[in-house]
Design a protein around this nucleic acid. Sequence first.
DNA 1: AGCACGCCGACT
DNA 2: GTCGGCGTGCTC
Length: 831
Amino acid sequence: MYYAVALALPRTMPFTYSFDGEIQTGSRVLVPLGRRIVTGTIVEGGVPSRDDAREIIEVLDVQPAFSETMLRFTKWVSDYYLCSWGETLEAALPTGLTPSSVFYARLLRDVTDDELDAMEARAPKRAELLSVLRENVGPLRLDHLQKLLSSQSIGHQLDVLQDTGVIEIVTEMEKERGPRTIRCVQFNADQAADDGALKDVFDELDRRAPKQSLALGHLYIAHRNSEPPIAVRSLCSLLGISASVVDALVEKGLAVSTDVPAVADDIPFDVSLARTDEHALDLTPEQRKVIDAILPEIDREHAEAPYQSRVHVLQGVTGSGKTVVYQRLIAAVLEKGQTALILVPEIALTPQLHDRFRRVFGSTVALLHSNMTVGERIHTWRRIGNGELTIVIGARSGVFAPLKNVGIIIVDEEHEPSYKQDDPAPRYHGRDAAIVRASFERCPIILGSATPALETQYNVSQGRYQMHRLTHRADEAEMPSISFVDLRVERKKGSLTGTISEPLADAIREHVGRKEGVILFLNRRGYASSLQCEDCGTAPQCPNCDVSMTWHKATSSLRCHYCGHHEPRVTACSTCGSLDVGEVGTGTQRVEEDVREILTDTGAVIERMDTDTMRRRGSHRRLMQRFYDGDVDLIVGTQMITKGLDIPRVTLIGVINADQSLFQSDFRAAERTAQLLTQVAGRAGRHRSHPGRVIVQTSSPEHPAIVASYDDFLQLELEQRIEAGYPPSTRFHVIEISGRNDQDVEHVSRVLDRLLPAEHPCMVRFRPTVPPIARIRNRYRRIIVMKNVRSVDPNGSQFRSILVAALQAYNETHAVSSVRVKVDIDASGLV
DNA sequence: AGCACGCCGACT
DNA sequence: GTCGGCGTGCTC
């Protein structure tokens, strides 16, 4: 029997393998690939035979990892975003469920010092390899060995050593890691059968090993009270004993130890930041209306005519109670025995959301996020697959959660750019993929946001999506008052304290003086400033990328955001040698210093929140807690601050420079700016007793993205986009060509330029250009921008066949492997 | 994507 | 001979 197996190789069709037996479609299998062993997925059985077909080594699943629906869905993603099916299937599986082979080197005999010395002269590399291997006891992983020798390739040396019989290469499979476990102990119940024997045991222990007696006594009482096994660590710290005491009890058979899966996401957050028992809360009339509109789609009978999945948009101002609407609808879905999928942009930043769902739905809520360990993720994924967990809250990749019988999908903050994946294939959009999944699942989908994306708003106006609005805050708090400070005027007056104008400074003092919470928001991508020579204007550049490096004062280092390169502070300008190198630009660190100056001697506690300070697990949550409790007066932060922040104490929000995200060479810059400002303003003034205030500093107080209402802005922006031929009137795609050698890259860009038709009614295509960042990670770049005109080519099929034909022609006849060609469908706009 | 294979130039 | 540094082509 021959099977089509999808492998995570770029632009390849599934491979054919043989197997003596039946395997269900969607199962993961281990197959040989060259000299490696990799995990693939059975996508079809009973395919035509091939002479060169090799045999499937092992079937990894009893129950297929992918359902029929998920196979069709992942196939759609691969076709739409132009990658191989195997790449999408790999992205859909948690890391760790796609084991592959690992190679080890093992020393076969002793190597003497003399032998090594002799080798040193002729083959230094080989000698070094052997000596490293000799130092280590046992086999050494080849990738580890390569790192130890800091070498690109050690293949040749290994071959020679293997041929001469000094070493052997062992192949092993990566072991699949289970969930993180905690070692627990409990009393061995068999011992309790006979009270007399038990007493003897304790008497003996009291004489010989009092600590063991103490521990056993504790375990015995726990056992009598039918308590669950206790963690060894807790027992030890409780009784002040060491783990060896417990080991001894286990050794004697008096106690049993078990490994219990640890639950990762139970970092307690004990304040109920909002309503505690929201499920019992009365709904506002607006909420009621939305629920009533969507509920019939959930309550419909299966027997009814095939249901066409509907897309609902829920536009609700901050605090209008979107979450409650989600919860009510999900409750209805669960009642029918179905499951629910919730996508959020960045889970690590929205712990409250999880708390709120946990409170209502208990332990059936699964969280999938990047901070989980491999084991935790696998454990959760399995429990979702077997129906133990019925509600999934996940980031972008959560769209691939193995839920069965999905009854509703919710994409919260649907406008967030982070839903678009851009580096490893598939370069999919989480929201758009979710809409497609909903249609495969035949269930309704809700796109929620206070500031819907322009595309979404456009689809509403075209009648494709159904709009629902929540215009009032559920807590009946008033909307904050917004005022603008013209930075141009303030600058002329000379009234700025660094980055902060006098009106904002006054407001900060006033609100902090009243012990109310203040947030200062910096809306720029990135978070640090850079250095610049004051004589010639040169800024230190990254050696690998054509960008200026950012200046991190705390570590006194320069860093590149694109490749991660970092180096210590430069003392002199690399171009003119001047020693006057100063800081430019505004980062949170800079703003923090300015605030400290303004609040000197007030004893105010000021904290910073950006990717730098929030790297550690749980630090975001802890800072929020302190802010909530009033232990922190003011937070300076980046966009991160707009997420999941729900703190009544906050009565003043200052936007340091609203223009900073406005003038970027990207067609979504204005939209993003308007969204950020609307979102951040919504964070103020949560209670009637504390009216909120928002102060926006800007140099363009006339720009609609800054001063207009969000809905008005969308209207204006839509006209401009249509005029310029940008989404939503077109689909925006980018081909990126990159490589080490600029000439090769240039050559390939010309080849592609030739292969793609210059003109076609269904598209507007640009000639290859050098992007604003001409080099990243030492690779030179070109881009070809293409706009697929929707009015001519409604479903994009015309454009698709043109593009696929060009790429195929390139790969078959012109491909240069030193140059990489990547296609970004529905690109974000940042090139 | 990995990885082997082959070719070249440098060094010894 | 050794070694590193590419570019090229293949993996059922």
